[in-house]
Simulated scan of single mutants.
Amino acid sequence: MSSPELPDPDEARPDAGSPPDVNTRVPLKIEDWLTVLIMAALALITFANVLVRYFTSVSFAWTEEFSVFLMIVLAMVAGSAAFARNAHIRIEYFAERGSSSRQRAFARVATALVVVFFALLTVLSARVLLDDIEFGETSPGIGVPVWWYTMWMPICAFAITLRALGLYIRQSRPDPGTPVNKDPA
């Protein structure tokens, strides 16, 4: 009786690793590292709060407020990376129907709408930021100025606008989405 041959763990699988990244002027490592740092901060804050609550039956008041803020920033940073990689949420039923020229046209229209939406969000959230500064509103949990939190919305919305605009430019080229060859050899 022969035993089935086990795969060599050192042998590279064809599906191993991540796909090559897209060619962008601003490296996507920025969003990737921000995501890692924000997730680490969220984990540390939550873990510290659980420990304090377990041993003292008291909770840090600031953790919920700061965690919500970090989750919003995390969503915006990850959204920026998703648009740059053309990995954002879309309705595949419509996005993958028809000829390739129709699919490209649909993708360009969708990306143009995203650019317009996030450009408007940048302007409107900047107005909210100015109102928060002018009126001196403070947060309910720890009493810090609310603009400390709201200032990140126009910054992140502007970053998404630029990433989506870059995607639109790449989609308009004859061969959009050509991956970057990270290994020149």
Results as ranks from 00 to 15, higher is better:
Met1Gln: 10
Met1Asp: 11
Pro9Asn: 02
Pro9Cys: 06
Glu11Cys: 10
Asp15Ile: 07
Gly17Met: 06
Pro20Cys: 03
Lys29Ala: 06
Asp32His: 05
Thr35Met: 13
Leu37Trp: 13
Met39Gln: 01
Met39Arg: 03
Ala40Cys: 09
Ala41Leu: 11
Leu42Tyr: 04
Ala48Leu: 00
Arg53Thr: 11
Phe55Ile: 08
Thr56Pro: 03
Ala61Lys: 14
Thr63Cys: 10
Thr63Ile: 10
Glu64His: 00
Glu64Cys: 02
Glu65Tyr: 03
Glu65Thr: 12
Met71Ser: 07
Ile72Cys: 07
Val73Trp: 07
Leu74Tyr: 13
Met76Gln: 07
Val77Trp: 01
Gly79Glu: 01
Ala82Pro: 09
Phe83Asp: 00
Ala84Asn: 01
Arg85Gln: 09
Asn86Cys: 10
Arg90Asp: 07
Glu92Cys: 02
Phe94Arg: 01
Glu96Ser: 12
Arg104His: 06
Phe106Leu: 11
Ala107Gln: 12
Val114Asp: 07
Ala119His: 05
Leu120Val: 15
Val123Leu: 15
Ala126Gly: 15
Arg127Ser: 13
Arg127Leu: 15
Leu129Ala: 12
Asp131Met: 13
Phe135Asp: 11
Met151Lys: 08
Trp152Pro: 02
Ile155Pro: 00
Cys156Asp: 00
Cys156Glu: 01
Thr161Asn: 06
Thr161His: 02
Leu165Ala: 15
Leu167Val: 04
Ile169Phe: 09
Ser172Val: 03
Arg173Trp: 10
Pro174Asn: 02
Asp175Phe: 11
Asp175Ile: 09
Gly177Phe: 07
Pro179Met: 10
Ala185Glu: 11
